[in-house]
Amino acid sequence: MNIKLNGSDYITSAVTISELLTELNIQADRVAVEKNLSIVKRTDIDKTTLENGDTIEIVMFVGGG
């Protein structure tokens, strides 16, 4: 399915947010995920499914002041 991931087109076979993070090799406890502008709680990543055309943002902490 086609999604918009962090601003770029992305093709994934993941069905849930949790699977997407695994596919991307991202540790869930170090990021926050937004699906179509709503935050997906860490406890909900297993049950939150992806739909074609979803806009997903995955953010983390980087150096900053």
């Binding site: 962090n6 601003g7 991307l24 995955i58 953010v59 902490f61 980087v62 900053g64």
Partner: peptide, 12 residues
Amino acid sequence: TVAVRRVNITDR
């Protein structure tokens, strides 16, 4: 302090 930014998808 830290900033919040997009995860780098291309360089995992």
